[in-house]
């Protein structure tokens, strides 16, 4: 009798062990992938996550999977994939807050500003720090959209006292001032200036070196044309050849000046956009990447 009890106990223990092992397979695989992600072994971690059979996973497990897949894509700078996965994490997940904030940031970085703004308005903010962070992220997006009034409304929520936010909040304020102070140059004026003095339009556009580089060949060709005209007459090959080249370079200088205004404006905007994106990222990493 006693022997059979022991054997039944043993069999029961073995069966229980097997049964317990089944549901933990996902958890084990997820933890393993997380361990690989922490070691920045993105290829290996992605391989593990892709091998997981998603058909029988519960909602929380799917959320955890979406979070880690999104996080790996974010680490690998595949931001479209990252935003898709991170924003699919449901509100019941412990990764919900982090996923939403980083998902919104990924959308912002991809310049999908309307979508990012819509997500940012819905960002979860259970405490005052996260409320300030949400306002900060929304303000960053507003600046990227050049919506200065909206930025001014949102910045009223800045407290300039949090270690994780204060420096970046001040930076955003300075970017706002810089963007507001941007001088609006006209391509037509630049072209007109270059028509008067070749290269002057580029100087006006904010590219003085390019202005000098445009002025010198036009001046040289102009002088050579004049010399050809003076010495050999208007029908001479010298005059016609240099005259054609001068016309080409002169027209190029005018066209280049109108383009320079656009280029300079794009560069200015890109520089500020990069600064804003950089500053939007720092508090996210400091507050949520733990």
């Amino acid at each position: 009798m006693t022997t059979s009890v022991y054997w039944i106990l043993l069999a029961g223990w073995l069966l229980a062990g097997r049964a317990c092992a089944q549901p933990s397979v996902f958890s084990q695989e997820w933890q393993f992938a997380h361990y690989l992600a922490d070691k920045e072994e993105v290829d290996e971690a992605s391989f593990v996550l892709q091998s997981i059979d998603t058909r029988q996973l519960s909602r929380p497990q799917l959320d955890s999977l979406a979070y880690l897949t999104g996080w790996l894509a974010y680490s690998g700078k595949s931001l479209e994939l990252a935003s898709q996965h991170l924003l699919s994490v449901s509100s019941g997940s412990p990764f919900y807050i982090k996923s939403q904030y980083f998902g919104a940031y990924c959308l912002t970085f991809q310049q999908k500003l309307d979508a990012a703004s819509a997500v940012a308005r819905q960002l979860p903010a259970p405490d005052s720090t996260l409320r300030e962070l949400r306002a900060f992220e929304e303000a960053g997006i507003a600046l990227l959209q050049r919506q200065f009034q909206r930025y001014d409304t949102l910045r009223q929520q800045f407290r300039y006292s949090s270690y994780a936010l204060s420096a970046e909040e001040k930076h955003l304020d300075s970017y706002r001032a810089g963007l507001q102070a941007q001088k609006r140059r006209s391509p037509a004026v630049a072209g007109l200036l270059s028509a008067v003095v070749p290269g002057l339009g580029k100087l006006y556009a904010g590219k003085p070196k390019q202005g000098i580089a445009a002025f010198l060949p036009v001046l040289t060709l102009g002088l050579l044309t004049w010399e050809g005209y003076r010495k050999d007459g208007p029908k001479s090959l010298r005059f016609l050849g240099f005259g054609s080249l001068f016309t080409l370079f002169y027209g190029g200088a005018i066209w280049g000046s109108t383009l320079a205004v656009h280029v300079q404006r794009d560069q200015f905007n890109r520089t500020y956009d990069n600064k804003i994106l950089f500053d939007m990222h720092i508090p996210l990493r400091n507050l949520l990447n733990r």
Partner: peptide, 8 residues
Amino acid sequence: GYYLSAWG
């Protein structure tokens, strides 16, 4: 006497 051509 093409001084400018000589230089340019």
